[in-house]
Amino acid sequence: MIASIEADAYPDNDSVSGILSFLNDHREFLRWTPSASSNRGFLDVPEHIGAAASEAYRCAENNDLRAAVLLARSVIEATAKAKDIKKGSLADKIDEMHDQGFIREHIKEGAHEVRYLGNDMAHGDFVDPVDKEDADLVLALMSEVLSEVFQSPAKVARARAARDAKRQAAATP
């Protein structure tokens, strides 16, 4: 509303230079938001999980820190479900991912850290604010889980396939 009212003060607001001048003079009201298609590089992660992880990062970039933490928690749960671990609480699912060998001990602990802070958001306990450092840490830990469960195994599979292809090519006359 402020922009449309003040735009009338710019006699040249129909030209590109007038619009640019207006935007420059009112930049405190502008906020750039990355497009919904921006991706944090979650190659080899199921599309719906990678999209949610990217969205969590976009939330943090926009200073929507509670949303970022809650999405990170949800990404951890979706990761367990993608590995057919669907029963029990999120804590149980994280432990089961470890027990089934999808994540190592320290990644399990990181997933639980995401769960701890995310639980506050998921259960409506908004007493303590989420700061940028906490949100950034949660997102980094979420990314570690995605790497451990999806990305690292896919890289190994590609390396194995490349080696096998070279061996077959060398053996073929």
Rank of each mutant, 00 (worst) to 15 (best):
A80G: 10
L117D: 12
D25I: 12
R104P: 00
F102Q: 12
A51Y: 01
V127S: 08
G101L: 07
K86V: 13
D12E: 07
G18C: 14
A78E: 12
N63G: 08
S17M: 09
V156G: 05
E96H: 15
D99V: 06
A7K: 06
A122W: 09
A171N: 13
A111K: 02
Q100C: 12
A60M: 08
V130W: 13
H123P: 01
G50C: 11
G110A: 15
L43V: 12
N39A: 01
F102D: 07
F22Q: 15
V145D: 01
I76W: 11
S38W: 15
I76A: 11
L146Y: 01
K83F: 00
P153L: 08
R58W: 04
V138I: 12
R158G: 01
K93E: 01
R160M: 10
M121K: 02
N119W: 11
I19T: 06
L70P: 13
R160E: 11
V69K: 09
I2Y: 06
G110Y: 03
G18Q: 10
L23D: 04
V114D: 02
H123W: 04
A161I: 05
E6F: 06
E109Y: 02
D64N: 04
E105W: 15
T79S: 13
A51H: 05
V130I: 15
R160Y: 12
G88Q: 09
S147Q: 11
V45R: 08
E133V: 14
D12S: 07
D131K: 09
R158Q: 04
R104C: 00
S143Y: 04
R73W: 05
I94E: 03
E113M: 11
I5A: 06
I49K: 03
D120V: 04
H48Y: 10
I5N: 05
A165H: 08
L141I: 08
M121S: 07
D25R: 12
A56H: 10
